[in-house]
Amino acid sequence: MRTTLDNPASVAAPFGDRFAHVARVDLAGGGALLLLSGQVAVDDAGVVVAPGDMAAQAGRIFDLIGRLLAAHGSGLGAVLHLRTFVTDLGDLPAYASVRRRFFPGTPPPASTTVEVSRLFLPGAVLEVEVTATAS
Rank of each mutant, 00 (worst) to 15 (best):
A134Q: 02
E129Q: 13
F85K: 08
V116W: 12
P93D: 09
T3V: 14
G52R: 01
G52P: 01
A23Q: 10
F85S: 03
D53P: 00
A28N: 11
F15V: 09
V114D: 15
G77W: 03
V130I: 07
M1R: 05
L126T: 00
L121Q: 04
V98K: 06
T133A: 03
L33Y: 00
S111D: 11
G73W: 15
A124M: 03
D44E: 10
P109A: 08
H81M: 15
R18I: 08
T4E: 14
V79L: 08
A132W: 00
D88I: 05
A45D: 13
F19H: 09
L35P: 08
H81N: 14
G105T: 14
F19V: 06
F102I: 07
L68D: 00
L126K: 00
G31K: 00
L36D: 01
G38Y: 05
Q57D: 01
A41F: 01
T87N: 09
R101A: 08
T3M: 13
R99M: 13
V79P: 00
M1E: 13
V128A: 02
V130Q: 01
Q39T: 07
G75W: 04
A56Y: 11
F62V: 03
P107W: 07
P104Y: 05
S97Q: 15
R83M: 05
L35F: 13
F85A: 09
A12M: 06
S74H: 02
R99K: 12
A110E: 14
R101W: 14
V42Q: 07
P8T: 08
S117T: 15
A12D: 08
D6T: 12
G52F: 07
V48S: 12
S37A: 08
P107C: 12
